[in-house]
Design a binder for these strands. Sequence first.
DNA 1: TCTGGGGTCCTTAGTCCA
DNA 2: TCTGTGGACTAAGGACCC
Length: 439
Amino acid sequence: MTVSEALTEGAPPDGSLGFLHVDMDAFFASVELRRRPELRGRPVVVGGTGDRGVVAAASYTARSYGIHSAMPSSRARRLCPDVVFIEGDHALYGEVSQNVMSIMRGFTPLLEPLSLDEAFLDVRGALHGVIRPEEIAARIRRRILDDESLTCSVGVASNKFLAKLATERAKPRATPTGPEFGSGVFVVAVGGELEFLRPMAVRELWGVGPATGARLSRMGIETVGDLAAQPESRLIASLGRSLGHHLHRLAHAIDERPVVVDRGMKSIGHEETFARDITDPGDLRRQLVRMSDAVAARLRSRGQMGRTVSIKVRFADFTTISRSSTVPEPIDGTGEITDEASAMLGLLDTTPGVRLLGVNVSQLSSSRIRQLSLEDVHGSSRDPTDPVVDEIRGRFGGDSIGRAAALSKSGRPANKKIGDAPWGPAAEPEPGTAVEEVD
DNA sequence: TCTGGGGTCCTTAGTCCA
DNA sequence: TCTGTGGACTAAGGACCC
């Protein structure tokens, strides 16, 4: 087969079956069930417990009630009043994730983590080709089950995109009568790519969300087969150059993206939805200081600085705006980032009430490079208290010290510490319990 | 009945400059 | 000198992912 034949047939030029996509099954929920086995068989959800929270992960039993991730917690409770809600323990999930990733690295160094519970692997050169990729997939599942008592599903294919779709076929399924086991490993055979893809709904493609799906539907495109039948020019005309070209290739099973071992971080930010909308400018300012401080501390702990500071404001009516400003030299100081963020916030009318506030720093670079290039020449302009604060937090914990400007008039921290409620504000305290007033 | 938080990437529009 | 063009950069918003 020539290269052009291979392309038109959908197989990549080398066409070998060497890409794996590994996805942990209901990861957060499974980790919780592992440490609380008495909950097995019950519907368990990890996520925000408050009215404004969402589901981060649902056990397969919970899924059989129609609960799924990203669903508002209030709706999950209506679907299944007996559901067990767990706030979640991000630090623990991070640890387990590292263990799982290191198991996979034992099979190939070419590993690209996508999130805590998912990764791509390139095993074309692994184990000198002695063991077939599907056998490697089975061994990875066995090791993760033996060492971590967790199950995962693996897709095997000739490129990343197909491997990811294959994983969905390998997964357990939630049915109204309860969970059903999946095959655990699903292989898209070389040469069978188009047959696998054609009947699939376009919405299942990676990169086609609700908006693009609706747009394609209006064009009469429902399946990947429909998509493949379109001239690329038509897709580009309606979806834009990048997405049109990308989807056209995917529909023909072409995906030449390599497994990227080290994806550097592009931005660091923090945002929070408040349990109640904030109208008081002083309150808002304190929240902004607290978040800027958290973002700055994370930048410094990673040895990074950034040039663009952005804020995001979601108003009570859910309209969301962002403002950004770029400074000439990279910064990582709490004061510097707070000043930029405050200046932008000050230009907005927040009297209608703010539901969510966020601070983000992008255009990142290594702080070591910056220190060598500038501080040697001009001396440091950075806030001398930041390293001291970082040191104290390193020793005594992240909430052991904070900015005075983040304190309410009563001297208590504004609301809570960063990372307390990663999936939305926690449930309001019961009536009669002490409620912290932020004034 | 509402809609989280961590991100990435893309599009569009405006500005500056060669 | 005027006009056009195109690249680099910035800003804002949107779509998407888990």
